[in-house]
Write a protein that binds this DNA or RNA. Structure first.
Lengths: 194, 194
DNA sequence: ATTAAATGTTAATCTAGTTTAACTTTATTT
DNA sequence: AAATAAAGTTAAACTAGATTAACATTTAAT
């Protein structure tokens, strides 16, 4: 199990002893998915929090009209899961699907509270992760309220240049909350400006 | 200091000993604000996390065009603060203003990590609070992406009936991300349906 | 190399929500 | 009780972005 990137990630927040690392490792599992496979499906309960070692995923939901809306993308050294479903162990409204072959490390619901008891520092790590996710989510609301689609696209481009290269444009449009046709128009507008 | 509601709130997540309660209390402060006063102003660093004992607040930002956008309302037994500013101790983009005379209890940035060290259970409480806030924030994004303004208004009405009674309608519009004129139209439409 | 599937583009028409502006109602102050 | 300010309404003209549909390009499969 390629757990090293996760340990490096954790070490940015807290310092674990060798014993703690060993104990932690013994309660994690790793998993590989192929492009197109689902890590989580709408209606299922999320049993794991996933740290991404390599690859790329999207989290999305399908609305009543059958339209797909992308909540976020995740790449290496970031997390993915429907936290709401995980916390409350209720059916998720979201899907997590791999956009590339993807390797993840899983924290399991039925051991995570025990891990927090044994290694309280881990609770700190998770608190900080969730804080960061909340800030990101709130910033997204701010952007959706105060910026035009074009401005949001430019922010996305600047914030996640690596991601834009790796995914089809219609998914960027879905993430931005606009149609692929309109994103196409925005891009041609931008190219005319230069 | 009327700390009881906060202790009741905490007791829904963890059980504190009498000693822990006493220690906690000794590091909290309470404060009263009049209607219209600011708890936090755009540009200032948020030094506190605020638990509301009574009253009502709005968190909002002012965009480049001078337009006000309301992120959320808070009433008794809920929290308010710009978590991003608090976590990173950087200037906030948000304002928190009292819509009624409001009493709060404050956790201070310079003692909160120490509180977590001394009473690790508190870290759990905060993790859960932030989790709930994240879920709420994500649900808001989902609604903004997949629902019309009318549907969002109906959800707001149903979710926070107490709040709708207490605040002017133009603030509801701002929260929903629409103009007051359009909310007015929506309401007259709805009243025609019945 | 060909074909089929997936992705991206362009343009015309349409609509949810904005803007502007004039007016009404409700609260607040004197 | 009058005067003023704050909040809410209505309607016409406007715009950002959606929808539809036809076509172009790239990628993947045979």
């Amino acid at each position: 199990m390629n757990v090293e990137p996760l340990l490096v990630y954790i070490s940015e927040y807290v310092t674990l002893t060798e014993d703690e690392k060993t104990f932690l490792k013994s309660h994690l599992t790793s998993r590989k998915y192929l492009k197109g496979q689902y890590i989580l499906q709408q209606g299922d309960v999320s049993k794991t929090e996933c740290f991404i070692i390599s690859g790329c995923t999207k989290m999305f939901f399908v609305d009543d009209d059958g339209q797909e809306h992308i909540i976020n993308f995740s790449i290496k050294n970031w997390w993915t899961s429907d936290l709401g479903s995980f916390i409350s162990q209720t059916p998720s409204n979201f899907n997590v699907q791999c956009l590339e072959d993807t390797e993840i490390i899983q924290f399991h619901f039925n051991t995570i509270e025990m891990l927090f008891e044994k290694i309280p520092k881990l609770e700190r790590v998770f608190r900080k992760i969730i804080e960061k996710a909340l800030v990101a989510s709130q910033n997204r609301i701010v952007r959706n309220f105060s910026m035009s689609a074009k401005e949001r696209y430019l922010v996305f481009k600047q914030s996640y240049p690596e991601i834009e290269q790796r995914i089809p444009q219609y998914m960027v449009a879905s993430y931005l909350g606009i149609t692929k046709e309109f994103l196409s128009k925005i891009k041609s507008q931008i190219s005319l400006e230069h």
